[in-house]
């Protein structure tokens, strides 16, 4: 039995914003099937009434004083950007011109 089909892997790649190639899909489909069947073993554990652990440190609502501190300058923040314009990160077109 397979845990995941090639089409489902293609769907996952789209969700994860990975423009995978056909060759990669062939490879990943088999590998992900093995991995997912293996990790599905967690289902063998009877854990209905067990609370989940998201984090090993029981800290909640950690606050610090709300005091102004120096941050990055605009130039420093933009220095690593692939593209910038007018002191901002420049991104490709999001909306069509007609919209």
């Amino acid at each position: 039995m397979t845990a995941i089909s090639r089409e489902e892997v293609a769907h996952l790649a789209r969700l994860a914003r990975l423009a995978v190639t056909d060759e990669e899909l062939d490879m990943f489909a088999g590998q992900l099937d093995v991995i997912l069947q293996s990790v599905a073993r967690v289902g063998e554990v009877a854990a209905e009434d067990i609370p989940p652990t998201s984090h090993s440190v029981p800290l909640t609502n950690v606050f610090r004083p709300d005091e102004p501190r120096p941050g990055l300058t605009r130039a420093a923040a933009l220095a690593g950007a692939p593209d910038s314009a007018e002191d901002r990160f420049r991104v490709p077109r999001i909306l069509d011109e007609e919209e």
Binding site: L18, L32, I35, V39, A40, G43, V45, P51, P52
Partner: peptide
């Protein structure tokens, strides 16, 4: 890429409880 896709799968609606949710309980 493999791990991103496995994680995307484990967190997706319909699989979340059986995979990610169950893993947190076993943790």
């Amino acid at each position: 890429k493999r791990r991103i896709m496995v994680g995307t799968y484990a967190l997706s609606s319909g699989y979340y409880d059986a995979y990610y949710g169950q893993a947190q309980k076993v943790r």
